[in-house]
Amino acid sequence: MLDAATASANDAQMLCEDIAQQLFPRAQRAPSEAILASTRLILQNLVQAIEAKLGISSDVATPLSWDMLSRSGLLREAALLEFALARMAEHHISQRLETGGAAFLSQLPNRLLDSDDPLVAECARKLLIAQNAAQIRSPESFLRQLPADVLHLLVWRVVAVFQMDGSRSAGNLIASGNQLLATHDEAAAVHATAAKLVYFLPEEERGSLLNPKDCGLALYASGLAHDYRLPHDRILRFIDEQDVAPLLLMLRGRGHQAQAALAIVQHLRGRRSDDHLLPDLLVQYEALDPEAARSEVLGWRLAAAPVWKAG
């Protein structure tokens, strides 16, 4: 009776929040069923991988802690959802690149393996390894790509669920959690290795970052992220967005002519149902001042800064 009453009382509050989100969504577009399903799947993969590392095995497809995690709101973290959305975008773009005959692994990191600078050569080697590992879409590979702070947050929330459940030794869970965190190497993730390589890239190679055919998706996204001081994952989402305008603005800010921009757009996005709008957009593109475009994109980092979200 006590538990049921408390649960019901809490539910009354949750119901308000759920209704508020549905009645007053802030994004202009409603998420599609496909996006919701894919996001859920990626998050479940992450939780499942963490459970496995904590020594919790189960026969069922859904992670054991999933129900509690999802109902308690412990997964309502912007950073987690951004990660899932970016992995989806990355998958879509990669598939298109492969279908279009473009190699996922480009020439640039291979060439940099022979760099005179050992730091650059090491970064290139790590990027190739990370990309290779990320190509296998498994719970484990998603886990490897997680930023360390996001993993930290998720691990302890999963541990908390099993601690509340009381069926497992808290000491063992904590030890396994610590072990998982201690062995996680954020610097080995694709986004991190690419960011480091872009940062330390020799001047004579920087031109390659302007064309995704030369540098590959990871370095291209990291190059844009570096130029515009935006998160790598946000760039991937912009590239895959239904609306091509954010990508076009980033390209204009880099000073690309319309035809060069069109080639990049088509390379990264493939054929889309709204391609008929591109000619009009390119006319506007030509009329746009590159400095104004750059300045506008630089302003997006404010919206990307998590500190504002609570405001």
Binding site: A148, D149, H152, L181, E186, A187, K196, Y199, R229
Partner: peptide, 15 residues
């Protein structure tokens, strides 16, 4: 602060 709070190693760009 992030490093202190999580106890993890980080390698990142800082503006």
């Amino acid at each position: 602060s992030l490093c202190w709070r999580t106890g993890l190693k980080f390698e990142r760009t800082v503006h």
